[in-house]
Design a binder for these strands. Structure first.
Lengths: 222, 222
DNA sequence: TGACGCAGCTTTGTATACACTGGGATGGTT
DNA sequence: AACCATCCCAGTGTATACAAAGCTGCGTCA
């Protein structure tokens, strides 16, 4: 693996998992020492992260980890809604119904995955991720998939803002199941509508339970 | 201006305006000599272009200018439709009607801009660009605007595939005028529908008149 | 005659040295 | 005491040298 890719992957993971919190300044020399590579691949990694929107150039001087603010969450979800609704519509037109019937069944039983054993809800989020992947594949649109991929990076970060309580996750699983079923049935309008409703519920839940972003940020300033 | 930005702007312009044709191999040393900067900023520029999708890494060895193929045009327009319809809907909800009434009037008279004096149709495309800008501003969604900006880069390249004959441009201007009017009226569903129809017409026109992409590419291989 | 392998070269990937810019601190002046 | 100018330094921007990896072409062997 190339050094620049290694640096990129390490930084990306650190940012997504909040080991690097919003507002953190990323200095090239410090990073190159910490990651054991020279500044050149570090710069390449930072450029890639900035292109993705995970970091932002700091007024001509250095880069900082992008802020995640509740103020712009509604905008993020408007874009998400536009992309995911269209993806669901296309998937409903073009999919192999068997795949989504299977996902529908699994999602109906997803309540069992939400146990106190795994606070990170790994199994649950993996299943939801499989639905996303299946929708992307069924939609069969490279550009749309790419746009969604870029967006989901930010959504993973946002997840930390809300406290995903078991009740909401079980509701969300049912909503996902409904989306899968609509796609399997090939009912385009229903697939789109179910996605719209699900995203609205998710956004409302996030906004109502989210911890203040500033409190999260402050704790990181050691 | 930084050397990396200069290189990026120069290459981006060369690709968009087909001075660098799809499939062209971009060698770092050759570019650094041609643009008069060292390889480091060239690499930075190429990374940025690849992130945008204007170039693609060539299986471990160098980068090439991305292909523009009719095969994927429908996919590109599916994404475009998803984004522009949502943007039009949001604009219809939130806009200052006066702005779009003005644009509506200007677009109704856009036929006069399509003269044989300017084969590049600069004035026409500038007016259409102003509509795009106004929609972005009215929609007031930073993420959506960014996604559209990324997309429009590809659309400018695609434009070269089709022969924009005056009749089609006049029709397109009327369609744009209709979109502007629907937004000014605040009729969300109409704005979305008018956008859908316009994009479908544009795609069909492109596909029916487009020169074979392969012939375009071949001519570049000197 | 065809295919496999090796050697050389071209091109990319990485490290490092140097240049330049912006900001902050310090000292002087009003 | 407050404000401005200058100097210094931290850190980025660029150039270049070196290392590694892949392709090409030729030669040899089956």
């Amino acid at each position: 693996m190339r050094a620049s890719e290694k640096a990129y992957a390490a930084l990306r993971s650190d940012i997504i998992h909040w080991r690097l919190t919003p507002g953190t300044v990323l200095a090239e020399v410090e990073l190159s020492e910490r990651l054991g590579v020279s500044r050149t691949p570090i710069r390449e990694a930072l450029a890639k992260l900035s292109a993705e929107g995970l970091t932002e150039p700091q007024s001509g001087r250095g880069v900082v980890v992008s802020e995640i603010s509740l103020d712009h969450l509604d905008e993020l979800f408007e874009l998400r809604s536009a992309l995911e609704c269209r993806a669901a519509e296309l998937a409903a037109q073009r999919c192999d119904p068997a795949v989504f019937h299977t996902l529908h069944r699994q999602l109906l039983n997803a309540g069992e995955l939400i146990t106190s054993d795994d606070p990170a809800r790994g199994d649950y989020y993996q299943l939801v991720g499989e639905l996303d992947t299946a929708i992307d594949a069924a939609a069969g649109n490279h550009y749309l998939t790419q746009a969604l991929k870029n967006l989901r990076v930010h959504l993973v970060r946002v997840r930390r803002l809300g406290k995903d309580n078991p009740a909401r996750l079980r509701d969300a699983a049912r909503e996902h199941a409904g989306i899968a079923l609509a796609i399997a049935n090939g009912t385009v309008a229903v697939a789109s509508a179910a996605t719209t409703v699900h995203l609205d519920n998710s956004l409302r839940h996030l906004l109502s339970t989210a911890s203040s972003p500033h409190s999260s940020i402050k704790t990181s300033e050691q």
